[in-house]
Design a protein around this nucleic acid. Structure first.
Length: 426
RNA sequence: GGGGAGAUUCCAGAGCGGCCAAAUGGGGCAGACUGUAAAUCUGUUGCGAAAGCUUCGAAGGUUCGAAUCCUUCUCUCCCCA
């Protein structure tokens, strides 16, 4: 199965330029995807693009990850309704370092591999490239009419668009040209919102007499219920464990709906078609086992984090969602407790507050830890029978004593099925 | 520059002197059902234990009483030039 066929059955192909498939079949080429250094970590939206590069590499081609050190300073108007804030060089450098680590985890960068992945930064060729040179050597080849026809530009004609953002496609197009010229890069991949930018590149390459260049894009990942992919109430789901703990990361995938899980397992795992078909079939026979979600979460968590992180996440999930009760919780040592609940939000409470024996549960849940925003919210939770202390439902506001503590210093608070919080007494 | 419409609790959007912490819908949260899914049904959704307190773009005013009336200001949208 060639690269494009692979993407096609996985539902990862949105648009493709004619001739791309033939060109890729004929020879092994280099291809690239750009990543914006807007944060020091990528989130799972970018994971789609990384997977694309991984497939590309597995098909024998050479993946290039371009970090937009220069373009990050300009800002891509695609899909943005407002002018973007610009980043400075120092921020971008810091962000690049973080992103690099994440890419290296997934793609094979070892130079002993013939088609090893490569990381480039477009700042390297834009630094020192004067404005005059740029508009003379590059701008000359692309007409204003061509630029104005772009959706990203058209949709901003009403609200306004700075010259800076207007020039963006041209800058990204030049990246493609440079990679084409210097690294025989023949294809640019990316999200469907990048189509306009990508074809500006192929156009530029044609005008400047490079080798034939191609393009393919991935569809926007959606969720069946219409909410945005990769978001939770806490914000984006990041690849960086400090921003999104492995436990939360694992939980994000475990919570995917059936419909989404079928889609995601094709996109985010490398499992072959037969295995996935089999999994889907089994899942439909015994949906309550949630094989799809488990396999999906397992595979991605290992790829992004590690086997150990997965084990811990599963263990934590079993305790939090399994049949476990306060009894099994009480048996945990402090070490196990901490390891298991690593990703659960925590807050410290002064141990001495327990002394009088009059510290109420509500005070801990609201004032001391901020787990719930107000006492009203706490009362509501009691009324709904949705509040648990150490896995036991609570129906009244009770005074907390040292006897309630797990491993001598923790309280496991819970609102509803999925929201946990740990109060640590120290 | 001229004329008009508007700004309401997370969002949309009613209310147009007391019955308004403010209809309704959406969203959020929770409960039931389940499979940590979807759908459905139910409850809940400013703070406060309560009395009560603080909210309806901002500041003043009228009134026993204002989201509702008046004045000024700020911002948004539409039409004409």
């Amino acid at each position: 199965m060639n690269f494009i066929e692979e993407l096609r059955w996985r539902g990862m192909l949105h648009d493709i330029m004619p001739g791309t498939e033939e060109a890729l079949t004929k020879e092994k080429v280099a291809g690239y995807i750009g990543f914006d250094p807007t944060a020091d970590s990528l989130h799972i939206g970018s994971l789609v693009q990384i997977m694309i590069l991984l497939h590309f590499q597995r098909a024998g081609h050479k993946p290039i990850a371009l970090i937009g050190g220069a373009t990050g300073m300009v800002g891509d108007p695609s899909g943005k309704s407002k002018e973007r804030n610009l980043l400075n060089k120092a921020e971008i450098d810091k962000n690049m370092a973080g992103i690099q680590v994440q890419l290296e985890k997934i793609l094979d960068f070892s130079t002993t591999t013939e088609n090893h992945a490569e990381l480039v930064n477009n700042y390297d060729w834009f630094d020192g490239f004067s404005f005059i040179d740029f508009i003379r050597d590059v701008g000359k080849h692309i007409s204003i009419n061509y630029m104005l026809a772009k959706d990203a530009v058209k949709s901003r004609m009403e609200t306004g668009l700075s010259f800076t953002e207007f020039s963006y496609p041209l800058i990204q197009g030049y990246d493609f040209f440079v990679l084409n010229r210097d690294k025989n890069c023949r294809i640019q991949l990316g999200g469907s919102d990048q189509w306009g930018n990508i074809v500006t590149g192929t156009e530029l390459i044609r005008r400047l007499g490079g080798t034939e260049a191609y393009a393919a894009t991935t569809p926007l990942i959606t969720k069946a219920d219409g909410s945005k992919f990769g978001k939770t109430e806490g914000g984006n789901v990041w690849l960086d464990r400090k921003r999104t703990s492995p436990y939360k990361f694992y939980q994000y995938w475990i919570n995917a709906s059936d419909e989404d899980a079928e889609k995601y397992i094709k996109i985010f795992t490398l499992k072959p078609k037969e295995e996935i078909d089999e999994l889907i079939k089994k899942h439909q026979e015994e949906p309550h086992l949630r094989l799809l979600q488990k396999e999906l979460a397992r595979d991605i968590t290992i790829r992004v984090h590690s086997e150990e992180d997965l084990e811990t996440a599963i263990e934590a999930s079993n305790i939090l969602f399994g049949k476990s009760t306060s009894a099994s919780l009480a048996k945990l040592s402090e070490e196990d407790f901490l390891a298991v609940f690593d990703g659960v939000p925590q807050s410290e409470v002064s141990f001495s507050k327990l002394d009088g024996g009059e510290l109420l549960l509500s005070e801990i849940a609201v004032a001391e830890t901020g787990f719930l925003p107000s006492n009203g919210e706490f009362r509501r939770a009691l009324k709904e029978n949705s509040f648990s202390l150490n896995k036991d439902k609570v129906s009244d506001d009770i005074p907390i004593s040292k006897d309630h503590l797990v491993a001598g210093k923790y309280l496991l608070l819970q609102r509803g099925k999925k929201k946990y919080f740990i109060a640590k007494f120290a």
